[in-house]
Design a protein around this nucleic acid. Structure first.
Lengths: 144, 144
DNA sequence: CATGATATAATAAATGTTAATACAACCTAC
DNA sequence: GTAGGTTGTATTAACATTTATTATATCATG
């Protein structure tokens, strides 16, 4: 896996839990099979979602259940839970510009406004997508 | 450098060329000193900006000059020139979900709509920031 | 034609990410 | 209360990505 796919794996897990969590006991093993990645990776992602309050996990026996209404689970919450510094990484600043150069001395201050603008807009857009829509999309896909 | 900083290095170079390109011959060596990274890295970034039509470079003698009005150079153009698949990488999809699982079979189709929404919004926001604003910020920073 | 610059390729070094393995802590059912 | 299955982590290895380094060919100018 060469690109960061934690977010889509998290969504995959959330769909699975929401749709089949009542009948089946959804374990990390099962999710690993379904997503095609390692059980430990799954457990790390699920653990991050748990810390965010999105779901609960039964310790010994296994199985996860959602903790929120679907419309309260936004892409932003999922993303931040799973990759906390993705926004910084997305549009980062070079660390070592020369302090002797007028551009190098000021580049950090200069980039702050435009970069914050981009980050805020991205945040708003991630907040506008909820698991409710995604579950709807899933039902549409199943109906085809 | 542990995070992707090509975009801010590119902006650094563009500011430098715009402000001091008339007096000095801006070479990759000079930009390497100012940004604090390797001349070859600079040349790769400058080369990408050139392909996008943002600037021109004199081959033998060296020195770069802008090719566009400042308001026509958007963050989006810079970003796409320098990291063409950043949008895909930003919010990627896991490659190997199980085709035997109803979620795994449909996850790609399900994520298409919400992910496109996020990418489109990001694109719009990157397009709304131009080098003109950034140069203004730079002048403000100098005046302080 | 000598100098200094770009353009580009190839390799090496550093960094980050995922997988694999192992093990302790824990719950439930028998 | 014990066995079986699961979570929560830590650690190590495998792999991919990014940046730096080195080298070479090409070009413009004095």
């Amino acid at each position: 896996m060469h690109i960061s796919t934690k977010c889509s794996i998290a969504i995959h897990c959330l769909i699975f839990i929401n749709e089949y969590g009542n009948n089946k006991r959804v374990t990390s093993e099962l999710l690993a099979l379904s997503t095609g990645c390692n059980p430990v990776t799954i457990r790390n992602i699920i653990s991050a979602l748990k810390k965010e309050g999105i779901l609960s996990v039964k310790f010994g026996t296994g199985g996860a259940t959602l903790n929120c209404a679907l419309e309260d689970i936004t892409l932003y919450r999922i993303y931040m839970a799973v990759e906390p510094d993705a926004l910084k990484k997305f549009i980062g600043v070079h660390a070592m510009p020369s302090p002797l150069c007028p551009v190098g001395k000021n580049i950090h201050a200069v980039l702050e406004m435009p970069y914050n603008k981009v980050r805020d807009s991205l945040k708003t857009s991630l907040q506008s997508v909820t698991m409710k829509e995604i579950i709807n999309e899933y039902h549409n896909a199943l109906a085809k």
